[in-house]
């Protein structure tokens, strides 16, 4: 049996919160006291707080393990309320992450979907490739990672729907221009499904391969319960096989 499929994240292990970075009003990055050396950008972990619950989170960094968490529900609220030294239990890494193709990489994040892109930008940097990052959100307050990516010296374009930061409009408009100007070898994106579908169309028109990371309601996280199946019409639209599971086949879908 393929080694990749034999472990499946195992049982959860306890980590402690070592440091907390405030990304915006509702989003924190937790730096944990441990590492996931085999993790790849785009993979995810299941994080458990006893008595609260367990949810999937994308990986922000592997050494030390870091998770960027937006306060959107009971579990993520408890996660952003954690203090230094508090414990959080992790199983993973799970799923299939991004795979860098070529040397020029266009990274696109929508809202808190930008969470895995700092990790991916670092992988690009390590490989000696070139990255251009496009981030979009409703307002300036909904953007994450902008300052961090700037500090890391990443080339960055920003769009907000209300124009409170960067260009006014949708990130997809920025992306169209970025494809023409930057001539990337591949596009990597994470964010709301609507944005991903628009990007898939755009990439199809430009014959650009795309790697799209999908979000879904996830329960088991290991391909058993079927909760995170991507709707069949989306699979058809994207050229994925019917019955595509976000946790097991994804979260990153290879398109084109």
């Amino acid at each position: 049996m393929n080694e990749k499929h034999r472990f499946q994240g195992g049982v959860m292990r306890p980590f402690r919160v070592a440091n907390i970075l405030h990304e915006n009003e509702s989003t924190h990055t937790l730096l944990l006291s441990g590492r996931l050396p085999k993790a790849k950008a785009g993979q995810f972990v299941m994080a458990w707080l006893p008595e609260v619950g367990e949810k999937p989170f994308s990986i922000h960094a592997k050494i030390p393990l870091a998770l960027t968490i937006c306060d959107v529900g009971p579990v993520s609220h408890a996660m952003v309320s954690l203090q230094v030294q508090d414990r959080v239990w992790i199983r993973g890494p799970l799923g299939n992450g991004f795979e860098l193709k070529g040397s020029k990489h266009l990274l696109v994040g929508g809202g808190y979907g930008a969470a895995p892109l700092s990790f991916l930008a670092q992988e690009v940097f390590r490989q000696g490739g070139q990255a251009l990052v496009c981030l979009g959100a409703k307002t300036k307050a909904d953007l994450i990672l902008v300052e961090r990516l700037k500090r890391q010296g990443r080339e960055l374009r920003v769009a907000t729907e209300d124009g409170s930061e960067g260009r006014q409009g949708l990130v997809t408009e920025l992306v169209g221009e970025a494809i023409d100007a930057f001539q990337p070898d591949c596009l990597y994106a994470c964010g709301p499904t609507g944005m991903l579908l628009a990007l898939a169309d755009l990439c199809k028109q430009r014959s650009l391969p795309a790697q799209l990371s999908f979000e879904a309601l996830m329960r088991c996280g290991v391909g058993l319960c079927g909760s995170c199946e991507l709707p069949e019409d989306l699979c058809l639209q994207l050229g994925l096989p019917g019955g595509w599971l976000v946790c097991h086949d994804g979260p990153v879908a290879m398109i084109g």
């Binding site: 499946q8 458990w48 319960c225």
Partner: peptide, 20 residues
Amino acid sequence: HANPVTLAWNGGVINAIGLT
């Protein structure tokens, strides 16, 4: 049932999905 509902490791899988 609510999460956690499943854990998988080398020896096997344990689940309590709860007949969803």
